[in-house]
Design a protein around this nucleic acid. Structure first.
Lengths: 252, 252
DNA sequence: CTTGACCCTGACGTGGCGTCAGGCTGTTGC
DNA sequence: GCAACAGCCTGACGCCACGTCAGGGTCAAG
């Protein structure tokens, strides 16, 4: 069985131009051409297109989709698992937004007005879906990642909110220490770092001091993590990083 | 209270460049400039930005967002109702995709392969969210929708007072039931809760039992809503919350 | 009075296609 | 046996919603 561009386009709900584009950039290439130069897609091409569309829907840039799909170590089942998790993330986020809108409606009805922070809450601290994707890419074959996956999968919404509240708390105290001029290698800062490490261990995976030190380095080396902390307070990424590494040295 | 671009950007989780862009195209303009030319956003500007971000998240092109928000016939409540519906559409679509991925996983596990039609089903008959906006315009032709739209959008002062009287009535009867020792999970209390739900559905938006249950939880979790009910009678927030949730459970 | 974070306005770049333009192919109907 | 028309091809340019410098002004802290 094979399909022409037009047929595949109708089937998949995209335009012919989109398929041309994907061919051009090498993302989804027809496995054959007719003698007249017509594109001819087979079942394996459909497979691939389906994967591409799902990742695209989840907000991945096409180039990243390509590297994901061309990774020889990632089998189809792994992609499905990842997509499943990402979709569930999106579900959660969307229901948070529904809840936010409902809250606004009720507030309006009662003549209450929400604080600005509350109103942007649902937009604010959202880490893009690609973040999760890359996190898996880096840690995908470690035992730590598997542990984290198992634990978070079993987490209810309330669990998750509780975990988030805890880490927000530590982050806020880090920010306060930074603002208060507490040195990153002071005992107080190291104690905060230790608390941070134990949180990770409790909720996600066994995080040894050395592993934790590695994380600390990443906070300043990986721009996405840096951005996350910098949005809480300027200089916080470096501060947390230093405190975490000082703590790791102390423990070692 | 006013905000600079940077502050607003952090608050809303967007970049400064985005705010510049929105200013340039006239989508969200700071209501003032300092003598030095700095943008200065006030609370009304935040309102607008929040609406813009929600519509953007839902996939509307910015130009369309502008015409939506600048429509003098559409009040804030109408926007919230529309956003609520669009978000619920997205929820539905996302869970359909989750189901599709789960189906694929299971099929793979059992060595079955799905038909191409099956596999693109979830993409295929999906028309982007902006289409839902158009769907509303279509539905706008039916009497029921148009009536409910007009009723709330163009609610006169008397209408509003009548609606308010209705909800005051239910609230008073809740207070009386509480004072009379009627249990929150009794049939009488649940009937009151049901009346409350139907009021919301009639006057504001489609409020399913589950949505209503969510509201109920908020009455005790959000201090401002709690304060609203507590001012009518001490213990009323918890009482209404319990009754609403008992009713939701009864309906489910 | 300097430093460093923050602000300004251009101006160009980019991703993911949409939209012609100009021309070849393949099937159906007469 | 050929006309007509739907469908395919390859450029090439356009567009949206910003990202990313460049070059320069502003402001609060020390």
């Amino acid at each position: 069985m094979s399909w022409t561009v037009g047929e595949l386009a109708r089937l998949a709900g995209v335009t012919v131009r989109t398929l041309h584009h994907y061919d051009r950039i090498g993302l989804v290439r027809p496995s054959e051409r007719t003698s007249a130069g017509y594109r001819s897609y087979d079942a394996r091409d459909l497979d691939r297109l389906q994967q591409v569309l799902l990742y695209r829907e989840l907000g991945f840039p096409l180039e990243e989709v390509a590297t994901l799909l061309d990774d020889p170590d990632a089998d189809p089942a792994a992609h499905l698992r990842r997509q499943h998790r990402l979709l569930r993330d999106r579900l959660e986020r969307t229901s948070a937004m529904v809840a936010a809108v409902e809250k606004e409606m009720e507030a309006r009805q009662m003549g209450i007005s929400l604080t600005p922070e509350e109103r942007f809450e649902v937009f604010g601290d959202w880490l893009p879906e690609e973040y999760a994707g890359e996190a898996e890419e880096r840690w995908g074959d470690t035992e730590a990642w598997a542990q984290s996956q198992r634990r978070t999968a079993a987490m209810s919404k309330e669990d998750w909110l509780r975990v988030k509240a805890e880490s927000d708390d530590v982050e806020r105290r880090f920010a306060a220490a930074l603002a208060g001029g507490v040195p990153a290698d002071s005992v107080a800062a190291m104690d905060l770092a230790e608390e941070h490490r134990q949180q990770i261990s409790r909720h996600f995976y066994d995080c040894s001091p050395e592993v934790h030190g590695g994380l600390g380095r990443m906070y300043v080396e990986d721009e996405r993590f840096t951005a996350y902390y910098e949005r809480i307070a300027p200089g916080l990424a470096q501060y947390v990083s230093s405190a975490v590494q000082a703590n790791a040295a102390r423990q070692g």
